[in-house]
Amino acid sequence: MNPFATLARLVDEAPRRALLLLAAFLAVLLVAPVVLDRYLLSVFFLIFWFATVGQAWNIMMGFCGQLSLGHALYVGLGGYIGALLWVKFGISPAIAIVPAILVAMAFGAVIGWLGFRFGIEGVYFALLTIAFAEVARIGFDNWSFVGGAAGFFIPVSAAASPVNLRGGPMLFYYVALAMMIIAFILCAALRRSRLGHAWLAVREDAEAARALGIDVFRAKMAAVVISAAMTAVAGVVYAFYQNNLFPSQTFDIARSIEMILAPIIGGLGTLFGPILGAFILTPLGQTLIALVEKIAGRAIPGVNLVFYGAALMVIIWFTPNGVWPWLKKKLGIPEGRE
């Protein structure tokens, strides 16, 4: 599994038209900050961020068929570890992502072990993931070393320091963009790898996968652990972007759900789905918030979420496979290819 070889192959196999479109799109994203104001930069940051965590979640649900509703756990763990190490010990987030990844992987492994060893599947497994996120929320709420329910804050420094994730929206734009692209390449490589095929087999029919020599337990564990690790990295970045962490928001089930919308709407199990979903959903939600604020004269909390809820229902009703498979056809990409 060599990401670069995969990239070369992807470029090789993709139809010319789709490739050109993608290249143009990337070029626009690279130069866009020149014309974007602070607000739009922050919107794009959110798009890239949700595309990244969406891709991470998609590994578990889209590739391996394991429904996690507690991914906020890994965001929170990554965020708190990054913030703690920086504020309390002066350790750069560039280094802190290593412990962040390791801790998230450990938690993922425990959840996976509990679930998969005892044959807990589907909604039962989903509940287990929620339970762990909730336990983490309560734990952090009561842990005074990290500020408890009053929150944990990263001081804003005047001097920009990109390695330490200190800087303006422009910095976070590029960090999140890079994160999204790296996640994509990683997912593409995984999707084509032996492990990726094992995941697909497990998703489609675990019993049949077992009969073909696939160790189903190991495949599922790998999915949880890798997904947790990717999400934790995004968590570190989010903490430094927000500069604050509150357990009640960070580990909230609403956050977990918000994270999974993009891949579902974009197309579960596809490579482009989570990215496409984030590009559709986040701007719509943000526009709605701004619009309501303009009309009502004040922010009404929950408006964008009502919209998300309606979007979910409409999409799952009409195109349960998401937008990407539909768009793929329009772009002339044959079925069975990305």
């Binding site: 095929h197 697909l200 087999a201 029919d205 049949a208 073909l212 020599g213 696939i214 069975g336």
Partner: peptide, 19 residues
């Protein structure tokens, strides 16, 4: 029969062969 329904015929066989 339990083929992997959403995967292509080639992918189905490839998953068997990859062991």
């Amino acid at each position: 029969v339990r083929p992997f329904p959403e995967l292509t015929v080639l992918e189905n066989a490839t998953i068997g062969a990859m062991m």
